[in-house]
Design a protein around this nucleic acid. Sequence first.
DNA 1: TGTATATCGATAAAGATATATCGATATAAC
DNA 2: GTTATATCGATATATCTTTATCGATATACA
Lengths: 195, 195
Amino acid sequence: MLQNGNYEAIFSRIPIYIEYLKTYEEEYISATIIANSLGLGEVQVRKDLAKISFGGKPKIGYEVKSLLDDLSSYMGFDKLTKAVIVGMGRLGEALFHYLGFDRINLKIVAAFDVCDKYNSLDEFKSICEKHNVKIGIITVPEESAQATADLMVSSGIKAIWNFSSSSLKVPNNILVKNENMANSLSVLIRLMNNL
Amino acid sequence: MLQNGNYEAIFSRIPIYIEYLKTYEEEYISATIIANSLGLGEVQVRKDLAKISFGGKPKIGYEVKSLLDDLSSYMGFDKLTKAVIVGMGRLGEALFHYLGFDRINLKIVAAFDVCDKYNSLDEFKSICEKHNVKIGIITVPEESAQATADLMVSSGIKAIWNFSSSSLKVPNNILVKNENMANSLSVLIRLMNNL
DNA sequence: TGTATATCGATAAAGATATATCGATATAAC
DNA sequence: GTTATATCGATATATCTTTATCGATATACA
């Protein structure tokens, strides 16, 4: 069970490189330019890229096109990933309509809520199995979070993106990433007060 | 400039401890119980607590009440922090109405948008200065993100919570925490595909 | 052709974070 | 009172992450 892990810091930088490279017009780019543009260290960028892509050339840098391909497939953006979302309050709505998921080739195939404007939870398992859904997004109130997680696990979901403030209990082979908004903001506040 | 930093991993665990402790009914609690309940290592919990609070007692543990006080004030939850939000699309709306910010003693004092249902950006600086706002939340489309950040910096804001996918350029003394939803989810997808 | 320079990759060092081990101590049970 | 045990805090070790250093190489230019 992954609880808010900082595992593999590199994973969180690759999408940033990808975003930046998409805006870059030249044929080649150096680690130095990427680093300076994104406020990172150039050795770190070079190391990240070396881990994923074939070599850049001294004095020239990396070919942007093939670098983009390599980074994207490393992150799995070349394959469609399917998700479902449970809890269609304001946050659920916002995520459901969020356009940025296209970029990472993620599709939210169904939205569930007790309100009958959305799919009913009775259909949850069958819909997930039919679409072979691997990602579950939880945006329900705290008191229903664990039950939602249990339903997801029993419906074959492998990774949960949890916006509730509950600590979910799930089996060992299920990933949980907690994305509690208040906690996340509080880290920023703490850092700010430190200065 | 903090770009999505994992600085001080401990900062991100404290709010989780706090949440958990609030639900705990006994007078004393041990690091072992906290660790097992949250899926963390007990040495890690003990170390975190030792850094912030006064000693626990062998065989007994820590007094829940004073532990909660110490952790809360360490995170700055004992003081009111004020924020403003710019960009009242679905995500902006969701954050503006999000109830969880009470827990961390954060108040969003104003919401801005080009649409006239909200405060106008013309009033941005004066409102921020009047309320001594230190935190700015950016939920605008990518193309207006940098301009919004510039406005925030020139209005005395010290820390920016950036939901756009742009990499913002800000002065050195300004904190930026990027909270790009797609990037964040893509880390989960990558971890899942690793297994 | 030779020299200067930007850049790479590799290796080493430093820093941050997490885990393991162990003696000390407060309570409980005998 | 003695012994057993849960727990603490401290120290040591391991792992992960970032930063520094340096020789090698591809191009540009005199």
